[in-house]
Computed example of a mutant assay.
Amino acid sequence: MAGVKTIIVLSFILAIGFILVILSSALYHNYLTLLVVATYVLAPVPNWICSKAQNNDDFMDSGSSSVVELGRFLTGFFVVMGIALPVVLAHTEQIRIEAMVMSIVGGLLIYSTIISFTMFFREQEEF
């Protein structure tokens, strides 16, 4: 059971992630690294939509559904894009290497906090 301390710690980590991404753009006067925030905010959306669209039938449970697998694939795509986008921008010299590192670390903190929130506050199904 998650309590108030869990919420405070996860909120603090989320704030650090956002601060790192914002500083990566503000310190080096290039705001392309803010695109990472969009990818990490959009990353859990396909998983959430596809899990709601899944047909929950107790009698015909075949293990996995193609809709759920599509949601996991799109979520993985967004997470990899959130890491690869700053690397590509740094490789093409659109942003500095320091901004790339700060953006990747901040983005990973943001996404890991989102995953932790969903793990700690998942509702248990009753049968």
Rank of each mutant, 00 (worst) to 15 (best):
S24Y: 02
L27T: 05
V67T: 14
D61V: 09
N30V: 06
G76C: 07
V45W: 06
M119L: 15
A53L: 15
V88S: 04
T113I: 03
M81C: 06
F73I: 08
V87D: 03
A26C: 03
G76S: 06
V21Y: 05
T113N: 08
L109T: 01
V87Y: 01
V105E: 11
V9I: 14
T118P: 00
L70G: 03
V67W: 09
H91F: 12
V4P: 00
T92I: 12
T113W: 04
L32C: 03
E125P: 00
S11I: 00
Q54F: 13
Q124P: 01
T113C: 13
E69H: 06
A43E: 01
S112L: 13
L23H: 02
T75L: 07
F120L: 15
I83P: 06
G71K: 07
I19M: 04
Q124G: 11
Q54S: 12
S64L: 09
P86Y: 05
G3V: 15
S116H: 07
L20D: 11
F127E: 08
T33K: 02
V41W: 03
F59E: 15
L42R: 04
I97F: 14
S24D: 05
V9T: 11
S51I: 12
F117C: 05
F120I: 09
H29D: 05
M1T: 12
I115Y: 09
V88N: 00
L32R: 10
V21F: 07
E125G: 04
L109N: 00
L85T: 08
P86S: 07
H91T: 12
Q124H: 11
L14C: 10
R72K: 14
S25I: 05
P46Q: 07
E93V: 14
T33M: 12
T33L: 08
P46I: 09
I13D: 04
V87E: 02
D57V: 08
W48S: 10
I13W: 00
D58E: 14
F18C: 10
S66I: 08
S25G: 15
K5L: 14
T75G: 06
T75V: 08
I83A: 13
N30P: 01
V9C: 03
A90Q: 05
M102H: 02
A15K: 00
M81I: 11
V79G: 02
S103A: 14
